[in-house]
Design a protein around this nucleic acid. Structure first.
Ligand SMILES: NC(=O)c1ccc[n+]([C@@H]2O[C@H](COP(=O)([O-])OP(=O)(O)OC[C@H]3O[C@@H](n4cnc5c(N)ncnc54)[C@H](O)[C@@H]3O)[C@@H](O)[C@H]2O)c1
Ligand SMILES: NC(=O)c1ccc[n+]([C@@H]2O[C@H](COP(=O)([O-])OP(=O)(O)OC[C@H]3O[C@@H](n4cnc5c(N)ncnc54)[C@H](O)[C@@H]3O)[C@@H](O)[C@H]2O)c1
Lengths: 249, 249
DNA sequence: CCGACTTTGTGCATGCGTTCACAAGCGGTA
DNA sequence: TACCGCTTGTGAACGCATGCACAAAGTCGG
C-alpha cells in the first residue's frame, strides 16, 4: 500500500552508484550531525563566506574536527587540501545526501498546545518542510485556519494526505490517541513519523519513527545533576571542597 | 558562582558508595532508556501490575530484552530469578538513580509559540519537573500569567531563578537571542539547559546542555526516505520490482 | 525435599562510532 | 619548476554499546 506512490518518487535526483553505496553506509549519528553542519553552512552562505576549513566548521558545529572530516568523507571528497571546503558545494552535497532536493510535505495531527506552536512555526518551510495539512478530532477546530492552513477532521486523513502528498506525519495528540493516529497515518501511506506523545509506537518495518520526549530529556539532565552533586559529596568526604580546592591536604 | 547553591543539594538522598560507582558508569544511552522504562513502569503501576518480566517490559519499551536487563543491571540487582521485577521497587530505584527524588524546578525563557505550549503543558509537574518561572523580553508579556505563572522580565532572571531554585532552564527564544539567554541562565547558576533554538550553544564544562532540533529530526527522516527510494531504484535496475517481486529473473 | 521450569544477571564476541596521527595533495611563492 | 606550509582524507587503534547464550538462582508443584 505504501509503495503506491513509490514509483513517482524514483524520478527525483537519481544518485550515482558510488553515492548509493555511501548513503547506505552513513552511520545514523553522522546523519544527525550532517544536518547540523548544513544549518551552520547555510548561515555561512548568508554571511558571504565562500570557503571554510574543517577546523572552523567543526568549531561552529561544536564537534571534533576529525569527526567532522570523517562525516564529510562519508558523502564524498569535496574539499581542497591546503584550502578547505567550498561552502556552497558542501551545502549542495549535504542537501543531496539528506534527500532535501525535493520538498517533504508535513502533516500535523493534534492541534492543541503543541500542534498550534508547530503549525505557526515559520522555520520549517524555509528548510524544505512545508506544513500542508492539519488534523484534529475536535469538531470545533475543524475548518479553523491555524498558521494559514484550515484544520481537517481526522477521518479525512487518508484522502487529504494523498492529495497533498504528505511524507512526514507529526503526532501531537494526547498519549492514548497516539497509536491509533499512527496507524491511520501508516495506512494513509505516510512512512515517516515524528512523535511527541510519550508512548512507544508500534509500526511496520517500512515506517521510520523518531520520537521527541521532553520528559526524558529533562530526566537525563536530572541524572547529570544528581551524578554531579554526588561526585561533589564524594570529593567532600575525600577532603576536596566543592570548588575544587583541597580542604585538608 | 554555580557552586553557591551546591552545598544545599548535597543533603538530598545520599547514595550508597556502591551506587555511586555505578551511577558514574551508566552509559548515556542507557540513561535515556531508563527514563523510558520508568514511564512504562509508571503506567503499569496505574494498571495495578505488581510484577513484570524483562521480556514483557522490553516489549512495552520497544527494546531487546537482553539490553533491558543489562540496563537494569547498571543500577543494581533488584529482580527475582524465575519471577521478574517488582514494579514498584524498580520504579523507586530508577527514580533514585535519575535523581528524581527531589523536584527540579524549570524556567522557560521565550514565551512565544513554543514557550506558551510548554508553559501550558500539564505533563511536567507530575513527573517531578514543575515549571516555576517564565521569562520574556517583550514588555507586553511581562506580568501576564501563562499556565498560571506570571511572565517575568528577562532582566530579573538572576533574582527570580535564585528565589525559585530553578535547576533547569529551557530556551525557546529566536536563534539570535539564544546564546545571550544561555549566558544569563548560566550566570544565574542554572547548570542544566534544554535548548529549542537551532544554534550550537557555548557553555562552561560544568553546565549540561541538551538540544531539541525539530528540523534536524525531519532531515534525518528525509535521509531515510531518500535512502529507501534509492534502494528501490537500485532494486528496480537489478530486475526487482518495488514490491519485492522479481521482474526479469 | 526434590526436580522441573522460569527468568535473571553477565561474560564474551561482535560491530559501530570516535579519535589519533600522518601521508597525500594542493596552492602559493621564489 | 621545485619547494614549503597548510589542510584534507583515511588507516588503524581504541572504547563503547549491543546482542547472544548460558550458568546461577529462584519459584512452584508434587
Ligand atoms: N505541550 C507541550 O509542551 C508538550 C510537551 C511535551 C510533550 N507533549 C506531548 O504532546 C502531545 C500534545 O500535547 P498538547 O499539550 O498539545 O495537548 P493538547 O491536549 O493541548 O492537544 C491535543 C490535541 O489533540 C487532539 N486529539 C485528541 N485525540 C485525537 C485524535 N484521536 N485524533 C486527532 N486529534 C486528537 C485534541 O483535540 C487536542 O486538540 C501530548 O502527547 C503531550 O504529552 C506536549
Ligand atoms: N514553534 C515551534 O514549533 C518551533 C519548532 C522548532 C523550533 N522552534 C524554535 O524555538 C524557538 C522559539 O520558537 P517560537 O515559535 O516560540 O518563536 P516566537 O517568535 O513565537 O517566540 C519567541 C519569544 O522569545 C521572546 N524573546 C526574544 N528575545 C528574547 C530574549 N533575549 N530574552 C527573552 N525572550 C526573548 C520573544 O519576545 C518571543 O515571545 C525558536 O528558536 C525556534 O526556532 C520552534
Amino acid at each position: 500500500m505504501a509503495s503506491q506512490r513509490g514509483e513517482g518518487e524514483l524520478t527525483t535526483t537519481p544518485l550515482e552508484p558510488a553515492d548509493r553505496e555511501r548513503a547506505r553506509a552513513i552511520p545514523e549519528a553522522a546523519v544527525a550531525r550532517l544536518a547540523v553542519y548544513l544549518r551552520v553552512l547555510s548561515g555561512m552562505v548568508d554571511q558571504g563566506v565562500t570557503t571554510i576549513s574543517s577546523e572552523e566548521l567543526s568549531q561552529a558545529a561544536g564537534v571534533n574536527s576529525a569527526k567532522l572530516r570523517k562525516d564529510l568523507s562519508y558523502i564524498g571528497s569535496y574539499g581542497t587540501r591546503g584550502v578547505g571546503y567550498d561552502v556552497e558545494v558542501l551545502v549542495s552535497h549535504i542537501e543531496r545526501i539528506l534527500g532535501l532536493t525535493r520538498k517533504h510535505s508535513v502533516a500535523v495531527v493534534g492541534i492543541g498546545n503543541l500542534g498550534h506552536a508547530l503549525a505557526n512555526y515559520g522555520g520549517f518551510p524555509g528548510r524544505g518542510f512545508p506544513v500542508t495539512a492539519l488534523f484534529d478530532v475536535d469538531e470545533d477546530l475543524v475548518g479553523v485556519p491555524v498558521g494559514g492552513i484550515p484544520v481537517n477532521h481526522i477521518e479525512d486523513i487518508t484522502t487529504v494526505c494523498a492529495e497533498r502528498e504528505v511524507s512526514i506525519g507529526v503526532i501531537a495528540t494526547p498519549p492514548p490517541a497516539a497509536q491509533a493516529v499512527c496507524d491511520r497515518l501508516v495506512s494513509a501511506g505516510v512512512q515517516c513519523i515524528l512523535n511527541f506523545a510519550p508512548v512507544v509506537l508500534q509500526v511496520p518495518d517500512n515506517v521510520e519513527v523518531r520520537k521527541v520526549d521532553l520528559a526524558v530529556e529533562m530526566q537525563i539532565l536530572s541524572f547529570h545533576v544528581a551524578r554531579r552533586a554526588d561526585e561533589a559529596a564524594n570529593d567532600l568526604v575525600n577532603g576536596i571542597g566543592v570548588d575544587g580546592m583541597v580542604i585538608r591536604p
